[in-house]
């Protein structure tokens, strides 16, 4: 099949449709996913297409609905529970971290939880402090949960299709700033294998390791750096668990410099994990410390300028890369 241009949102919907047609145990449940069509429109039309038995609108009961999905996963269905905003994770962490993630282990492998939790996070829409966070590290810190974050349209489709076949719980985190983004979808050609980082751009001076919407900020920064004569690789890890470090280590050893970029805030974020692992695997090859450009350690404000400055921008990424490679300090370095 040849690639067709579509949006991230459409690619996600296509994946749900194709997945549900392939497996009739797939059952969607969540708030406003049916009649309303999904808060960001991903499930629009699925109620008409698959009926109310497979597309369940739930009351506003996140722990109840995720716990229900866990129980359905234990007894023959493949539930897709949608949590409208990842910020509501605080309401459901018991069902995810203590229940879904541990059931297989606690019960000695007798039961598995093929649960897919769809949610979305990220800033960019003035949704303020309780609707804009990047909380993937909460899940990545829990053994038993797979965590994937698609950036491209093609990944939105393929990672979701694959997640719908997994025997273990998958936390599938979309980015609210990507739903309308266009890109090519080729249903026969995934960007890469499950759990494998993908190099989105190749360069020789520096490797930037990132994921989700920051992939595009990093690519824009790399273009700007190219004009300054700095050749940059951008690696999209796509999945926090599983994660194969070897392609990242290979790239960093070749370049000798690495930078990690995440939208999630700096302290104890997944950027720290990536930085530590790169340092461990590449210490003898590194010419500079592995630096992190990450979200500020503050809540997200509603004012557009404050929000925009709370997370990395292409300009900040490029300035930091330039500083790292050429030791030219940016203006803000004072």
């Amino acid at each position: 099949m040849t690639a067709v241009e579509t949006t991230y949102r459409e690619a996600l919907r296509e994946a749900l449709i194709d997945g549900m047609e392939a497996d009739d145990t797939i059952t969607l449940m969540g708030e406003e996913i049916g009649v309303y069509g999904g808060s960001y429109g991903v499930t629009n039309g699925l109620l008409d297409r698959f009926g109310a038995e497979r597309v369940l609108d739930t009351p506003i009961s996140e722990p109840g609905l995720v716990g229900t999905a866990v129980g359905a996963a234990l007894t023959g269905l493949r539930p897709v529970a949608e949590i409208m905003y990842i910020d509501f994770a605080g309401l459901v962490m018991d069902q995810l971290a203590n229940q879904a993630a541990k059931i297989r282990y606690m019960f000695g492998g007798q039961l598995g939880v093929p649960l897919l939790l769809r949610t979305q996070g990220g800033a960019g829409r003035s949704a303020a402090a309780q609707h804009s966070q990047s909380l993937e590290a909460w899940f990545a810190h829990t053994p038993g949960l797979r965590v994937v974050l698609p950036a491209t349209v093609n990944d939105a489709y393929h990672l979701l299709r694959e997640a719908l076949t997994k025997p273990d719980p998958v936390i599938f985190i979309e980015h609210k700033g990507l739903y309308t983004r266009k890109g090519d979808l080729d249903k026969d050609a995934p960007d890469g294998a499950w759990g494998q980082p993908v190099r989105r751009r190749t360069g020789s001076d520096l490797v930037i390791v990132t994921y989700s919407r920051m992939v595009f900020e990093c690519l824009a920064a790399a273009d700007a750096l190219e004009a300054q004569g700095i050749s940059t690789s951008v690696i999209d890890i796509r999945s926090l668990n599983p994660l194969d470090m070897s392609p990242i280590a290979d790239a960093v050893r070749a370049a000798g410099r690495a930078m990690v970029v995440t939208e999630s805030c700096l302290t104890a974020g997944f950027s720290a994990e990536l930085s530590a692992r790169i340092t461990e695997h590449c210490f003898d090859w590194l010419e500079e410390p592995v630096v992190r450009v990450a979200g500020e350690d503050i809540p997200i404000a509603v004012a557009p300028d404050l929000e925009a400055q709370s997370i990395p921008t292409a300009a900040l990424i490029a300035e930091t890369a330039d500083w790292l490679v050429t030791r030219r300090a940016p203006q803000w370095a004072g």
């Binding site: 059952t27 722990p63 109840g64 995720v66 716990g67 229900t68 999905a69 866990v70 129980g71 359905a72 996963a73 234990l74 007894t75 023959g76 269905l77 539930p79 018991d94 069902q95 203590n98 229940q99």
Partner: peptide, 13 residues
């Protein structure tokens, strides 16, 4: 913690 799991089991049944 195990209470909602029976709701899911009931849904499956």
């Amino acid at each position: 913690g195990g209470i909602p799991h029976v709701v899911g089991a009931g849904l499956s049944y």
